[in-house]
Amino acid sequence: MKQPFPFSAIVGQEEMKQAMILTAIDASIGGVLVFGDRGTGKSTAVRALAALLPPISAVQGCPVNSQFAKDVPDWANLNDKQVAAMPTPVIDLPLGATEDRVTGALDIEKALTKGEKAFQPGLLARANRGYLYIDEVNLLEDHIVDLLLDVAQSGENVVEREGLSIRHPARFVLVGSGNPEEGELRPQLLDRFGLSVEVASPKDVATRVEVIKRRDAYEHDNTAFMVRWQAEDAAIRDRILKARRALAKITTPDAVLSDVAELCLALGSDGLRGELTLLKAARAQAVWDGKRKLTRDHIRAVAPMALRHRLRRDPLDEAGSGTRVTRTVEEVLG
């Protein structure tokens, strides 16, 4: 089985790659929504980043990837609870998936006849401590969207049937992609994504040729291609790990907090989730840049991806939401 395409070998799409990196530094940012053309590397990027990250420690055979033996659910029925390294999980949530497949299913008959909580874990269990990827997220059925909203809020999946209840942790980075021409995303789910980026097919011949060359090399000379990008991927991984360690030590001046609040007020974003996400993303950007103090430059760098999907529609303004954010940043921050 081939390894995922190297993250550092992805041509262009800098904003998408940066958003992925920021959520790898601080998972509490809340995931990434990627809207744009088909075939622009959306699913490639999330799999590449997960493969780049160091393995996680998990109990072998645990259906929710528990880090410690004491956290393995009773219903898992594991006798041997050895901890081993495993790749960061990336789980696809396909369109048309049933509720039982997403959340897991309880065997009511076994529970009633044998008095045992028989539970078949779903996709949310497998995604714990990893990534949940949803292609065409804007086409998800409403009841699945509601489930995701509940889990994203609590970090826990609850399955209840006939008076029986099963709970397990479900904390993951949610990555959704789609084409806005095929349908809009429900506002409630849209607001749950920390960052939003827009991607497009490259417009110049040289860039398109480079994409073709790298993909062709990956498919037909895979070993040499992977070795070629190994060092660059390792450098990104080391930089992410260094940024994670520095995150708790970064200084946040009150003046920058005022900038964040003033910017969100000027844009008319609802609630405080915009401010909180902007602050987290800016801090992640700062430590990625190797800085110890948050500045306006870091706010400027991440404001479009943190705020563009939180704006109310303005029928009198034909500029895109990203342009509106950039324009307001210039007006507020100078």
Results as ranks from 00 to 15, higher is better:
residue 221 D to T: 08
residue 278 L to F: 06
residue 26 D to S: 12
residue 124 L to E: 01
residue 190 L to Q: 12
residue 145 V to H: 03
residue 10 I to N: 04
residue 297 D to H: 11
residue 32 V to E: 03
residue 91 I to A: 02
residue 226 M to P: 07
residue 250 I to K: 03
residue 146 D to C: 04
residue 138 N to F: 03
residue 119 F to H: 02
residue 280 K to M: 13
residue 170 A to P: 06
residue 140 L to S: 06
residue 238 D to C: 00
residue 271 G to W: 01
residue 26 D to K: 06
residue 271 G to I: 04
residue 55 P to W: 11
residue 164 L to M: 15
residue 26 D to A: 07
residue 9 A to E: 05
residue 1 M to I: 06
residue 308 R to D: 10
residue 325 V to A: 04
residue 15 E to H: 01
residue 20 M to Q: 05
residue 290 G to W: 03
residue 42 K to I: 10
residue 123 L to C: 00
residue 327 R to N: 10
residue 190 L to C: 00
residue 51 A to M: 09
residue 176 G to C: 09
residue 2 K to E: 14
residue 267 L to D: 02
residue 206 A to S: 08
residue 222 N to H: 15
residue 67 Q to N: 12
residue 130 G to S: 05
residue 310 R to L: 12
residue 201 S to Y: 09
residue 143 H to T: 12
residue 128 N to L: 00
residue 106 L to E: 06
residue 94 P to E: 11
residue 33 L to A: 09
residue 203 K to C: 00
residue 76 A to N: 12
residue 34 V to P: 08
residue 277 T to R: 07
residue 205 V to S: 05
residue 321 S to D: 15
residue 35 F to G: 08
residue 3 Q to R: 15
residue 91 I to M: 01
residue 231 A to S: 08
residue 32 V to L: 01
residue 313 R to A: 09
residue 165 S to P: 10
residue 293 K to M: 15
residue 91 I to L: 01
residue 64 V to N: 13
residue 262 E to W: 02
residue 49 L to F: 04
